[in-house]
Simulated scan of single mutants.
Amino acid sequence: MSRRTLYTALSWLAPLLVLCAWESASRLGLIAQQVMPAPSRVAETAWELARTGELFLHLGASLLRAAAGFVIGGGVGFALGVAVGFSPLAHALLDRSIQMVRAVPFLAILPLVIVWFGVDESGKIFLVSLAVLFPIYINTVLGIRQIDPKLMELAKVTGMEWPAIVRRIVLPGAMPSILTGVRYALAHAWLALVVAETLATTKGIGFLAMDAREFLQTDVILLTIIIYAIIGVAADALARLLETKLLGWHPNFAKGAR
């Protein structure tokens, strides 16, 4: 067994121990079923919801909202980050306003979003887009500004054209920071989605949790929490895979280096 495989196995040890302890405590009666149902009970609930198709209906709705918000917010954040990173004028015009909006809590924006968009899908996607925008914007600006000035001087001395400078120096140099922003943005997207799905809706993992709360279905509430956790881990793994593919040239991101 390689060291990397060993570390991967060890990373799952703590969650498995928690599940075993949780199941044992529930079966021994140390934890009330109404308060914290056993993992086996949560698994049965998941199977029943999957069998009827209800789980996939809600999961699909949440994934579509998250994906749409990520694409829109990520695109806008990247475009703004590139503009501010390259242009002092754009920084003077845009950065302070962006930072002010970033400081506003989501729950404070929620009433205004309802006024603007009502309770349609557009409002939910807007909230996710807004959450995704800021991590990608900040890390794109940071990545561009951390480019080694000597590389830029060398490119100018050798007569490299500006598009080539961006393609061969700026984007590769800023990519580690940009992908870090992507990882943060993926986490923020799900946090925003939880808030967004508290709006009037009939589909989504957030709706499933809110509906279960009304009927005191603790097993369903725990299932939604576990689903969010699994999706978060899967999204982070996807981001790490993207780092490995795009940053294979970088010693800190090369395969086997992490």
Rank of each mutant, 00 (worst) to 15 (best):
V101A: 15
W162F: 10
S129V: 04
I178K: 06
L199Y: 08
G173T: 07
S129E: 04
A196W: 09
I147C: 13
K156C: 05
I98D: 05
K150V: 04
D211V: 01
L107T: 14
K124N: 02
L171Y: 09
L110R: 09
W190E: 03
I144N: 05
I147S: 06
L142I: 06
A196I: 11
A185T: 06
V115P: 10
L133G: 07
L142A: 14
G204K: 10
E197S: 02
A108K: 08
V115Y: 10
K150S: 02
A189S: 15
A196R: 09
P111W: 01
R145Q: 15
V101L: 15
R168G: 00
W190H: 02
E121K: 01
F106P: 01
V141F: 03
P105M: 00
A174D: 08
T180A: 13
R96Q: 08
K124H: 02
T202D: 14
H91C: 12
G143P: 05
L154M: 15
L133M: 14
Y137I: 03
R145A: 00
Y137M: 02
D148C: 04
R102C: 09
D120K: 15
G143D: 01
L93Q: 11
A189C: 09
A209D: 09
I114R: 08
I169V: 15
L127E: 04
M160P: 07
G181Q: 04
N139K: 09
R145G: 06
A90P: 12
L93S: 10
V113H: 08
E161L: 07
K124A: 00
A185Q: 08
T140D: 06
K150M: 03
L130R: 05
K150E: 01
E197I: 02
G173N: 08
G159P: 05
V132N: 02
V182C: 13
K150I: 02
A164R: 15
P176Y: 02
V101M: 15
I147M: 13
P135D: 00
K203T: 09
M210N: 13
V141A: 02
I98E: 05
Y184Q: 12
V113A: 14
G118W: 01
P88E: 05
N139P: 07
W116I: 11
Q146E: 15
S122D: 14
L171C: 03
Y184H: 11
L112M: 12
T158I: 11
V182E: 00
R183S: 13
M175V: 08
L199N: 11
L186P: 04
L191H: 03
V166H: 07
L191Q: 06
M152F: 07
R102D: 15
I178F: 12
L208P: 11
A200Q: 13
G123I: 07
V115M: 13
D211R: 10
